[in-house]
């Protein structure tokens, strides 16, 4: 194998990603070519020189991290009202409330802009009012 070709394969060789035949050819060349031998040695050191080994995870630091993430998960996207409704309202009550909200709110709304669920509720044709639909149209 020629010097120029070997140079492009040195990294893959060091990483153990070459097939047996190519690896043998690169190995033979690197043993007899000072430049390629030295570059292979540099490539083997590169990772350890540029990256610090990660410190072992400290369980207390991990717990603090879990708490930070969960604090943000709680605050993320879900409105307090939605969380309240999802967790504490009995499903039947939620449905009744949704129907009430729809009945009070919908007559004044432009019905063509409403999601299908809400239109069905408003038309009285839907099997069950979906409170998600109501939340979507609520301001």
């Amino acid at each position: 194998m020629k010097h120029e070709e070997v140079r492009t394969l040195l990294g893959e060789w060091v990483d153990g990603e070459l097939g047996a035949a190519e690896a043998a050819a690169v190995s033979a060349h690197a043993a007899s070519c000072a430049d390629c031998g030295a570059d292979a040695a540099r490539l083997r050191r590169l990772g350890a020189v540029l990256f610090r080994a990660a410190a072992p995870a400290d369980p207390r630091a991990t717990e603090a991290f879990v708490a930070r993430v969960m604090g943000r998960v709680e605050a993320d996207a879900v409105s307090p009202w939605e969380r309240f409704a999802g967790r504490w309202l009995a499903p039947g009550f939620a449905l009744a409330l949704a129907g009430l909200v729809a009945a009070v709110w919908l007559p004044s709304a432009d019905r063509f802009d409403l999601p299908l669920d809400a239109q069905l509720v408003a038309d009285g044709r839907g099997a069950l009012p979906s409170y998600e639909g109501v939340f979507e149209v609520a301001p």
């Binding site: 540099r42 050191r45 590169l46 350890a48 020189v49 540029l50 990256f51 610090r52």
Partner: peptide, 13 residues
């Protein structure tokens, strides 16, 4: 970097 890569001692960050 050149120095760290060409030393003989075990590589360290």
């Amino acid at each position: 970097l050149g120095l760290a890569l060409s030393e003989e001692s075990p590589a360290k960050a």
